[in-house]
Nucleic acid binder design. Structure first.
Lengths: 339, 339
DNA sequence: CACTCTTTTGTTAACGCTAACAACCCTTGA
DNA sequence: TCAAGGGTTGTTAGCGTTAACAAAAGAGTG
């Protein structure tokens, strides 16, 4: 009464016997070694097929020291941005022949990052992508002794590690310049949490665009990316007299802003123009459809794997910094000011 | 000029020498074997600490046949539901001491599922959670010879595999009953794609509630979960005369429906009441805030890991079916009909 | 004090694979 | 015909861990 399915899984030696060769020859066939007679190769392949053999990657990893697995450290995969980035990373990694092992952190202190890295390292990953959108995470990463090739996504100042990110400053600038070009006197800003680098970048772009146009930058309103925080900021803005244009740091908060305006009877875009950031799938169907800045998360994921794989293959040791440009998407939430 | 950091990582034998014991004793300490003198244990622990030793889990996996890694197969992690489920799975798995390796599929045919399972199996995962919301995926799973403990999330009729899912029928019923209780003569439905089990379940619940109330079920409008498909359905509905209540199969489509209604001058909820499904973070800030059915994705993730771990620890061999109840969330998109 | 029984520790042999080397086969050219 | 040289195959030795057994050291008993 065999407890499981009876026969044990075939190993290389079984294939070797079946094909009448040595296990090493089987190994050679499997690894595309050039010096194998094609007739022998065929015989081995047939034996593999017949026995349903699959090579044991754990054993392989033990001797080669490569697991062909990449680690990903992330924070809150529930948000559209991180989720999309991880998706892009996963797809790109698999296309490059790597497995992906994921750790999603709740908190982002240094201890958390270290633990995650240790955890992945124990498991034998060949390299790591850390999605580190918060200053603390980026800092932790910079401070940590990294035993393996590592790429930071949205990870700040580079230096000790390669970075792939979207040009947030440019995005903030695009949004603001668009609003100014429509004739708005100034542009208000609902910003993301100060601990987030992306939030800082967008603020910086907004500030720069205003400064270059010779305008005063109003005090930005604080948000935490959530629709609710946008809603609250929206209520504040609705109660002010001179607001005609708002750049909101992400689409979710923009939704909250729109909701608050609707409730207060402020019409968008007739009275106030609103620009968001991210271009989540929903934005096109907000009321009104949201003008926003699109981030190509897919490209970010792809590039981060490219950079990492390049490092793994012994590429240049210097740390790269790869910046993905954002794209402006115009819809109906903005319009020319009619004075 | 050592290329990397010079010295090789310490192994068990190094620790053994340092502590003046055999490597097997070190192994025993590491595995909490009871029969180790506490003084010896301390000595070993100190040596481990001194050398910064970390055990090689790959070697361990080779001999124990357990990798303490769980595989997750998923489709489109960009959607809120799947993303949240995976997040829940990952958290629960880590809490249970397992690593998580993820494969995100684009297509969901049998070949895709088989490949994903093979891929994970090659890597040596101990068990697999397959998020299989589509009939084809569930079917593929049922047909495949599963070499490892497997749990399907939203995976259909059980039978050959354990299943954890949200009670979609009940959800559809809740939504419909709510609308009927408000005095609506009947309830229209914008459904999800027909090969999704969740879509079918919601349709079934909607039908059942109407039947039990002795009402005719109108022909459901087809959608594909996207806001755009909801928008198109909404335009159709807006052009009809007798529509006063709509149950939309997910919140994203509901957003599209709301948008179409707004464009056509149909007021919600005054003229038409709308109920969604999922309770994504945005729904509370739609215009109007959306009455919807909440799915506890976190619980689904947790339960799927519980079931899987139970199987891994040699629990009952019968396949379980665990159903998570949905929850009704009332907001402002529905109201009593005033005849 | 001899004897058994229980802890505690060490020794040896896998796990399934690849790397390194050795051995063999066949060409090829003198 | 033989030697040299390349292509092809086999043999051996690990990789770093745990399992199984063996040995040594204490504890308890008459």
């Amino acid at each position: 009464m065999g407890s499981t399915l009876g026969r044990r899984l075939p190993v290389m030696a079984d294939v070797a016997k079946e094909a009448g060769v040595s296990h090493q020859t089987v190994s050679r066939v499997l690894n595309d070694h050039p010096n194998v007679r094609s007739e022998t190769r065929t015989r081995v392949l047939e034996a593999i097929d017949k026995l349903g053999y699959r090579r044991n990657l754990v054993a392989r990893a033990l001797v080669t020291k490569h697991s062909r697995t990449l680690g990903v450290v992330n924070f809150d995969t529930t948000l559209y941005g991180p989720a999309s980035t991880v998706y892009g990373i996963e797809q790109a990694a698999r296309a490059a022949g790597y497995f992906v092992s994921i750790v999603s952190l709740k908190s982002i202190d240094k201890a958390g990052v270290r633990d995650a890295l240790d955890y992945l390292s124990d498991q034998g990953v060949d390299g790591v992508v850390v999605v580190a959108p918060q200053r603390s995470a980026a800092q932790a990463l910079a401070d940590l002794p990294l035993g393996k090739p590592t790429v930071a996504v949205e990870g700040g100042e580079a230096g000790s590690v390669s970075v792939v990110c979207v040009d947030q400053v440019e995005g903030g600038r695009l949004a603001t310049e668009h609003l100014l070009s429509l004739g708005h006197e100034t542009v208000w800003h609902v910003r993301g949490p100060s601990d987030w680098l992306e939030a800082e970048g967008r603020v910086a772009g907004w500030r720069a665009a205003l400064r270059e146009a010779g305008r005063e930058a109003p005090r930005p309103l604080a948000g935490d990316w959530s629709p609710r925080s946008g809603y609250e900021a929206g209520r504040s803005l609705a109660s002010m007299k001179n607001v005609t244009a708002v750049f909101v740091a992400n689409d979710q908060m923009a939704l909250g802003v729109l909701r608050a305006f609707t409730e207060q009877g402020v019409r968008v875009p007739e009275e106030v123009s609103v620009v968001g950031f991210d271009d989540i799938p929903e934005s096109e169907f907000f009321s009104p459809p949201l003008t926003t800045i699109r981030q190509d998360f897919d490209a970010v994921g792809r590039h981060s794997i490219e950079v990492l794989v390049r490092q793994l293959q012994g590429g240049p040791q210097e740390h790269e910094r790869l910046v993905v440009p954002p794209r402006f998407v115009t819809r109906l939430s903005t319009t020319r000011v009619n004075a």
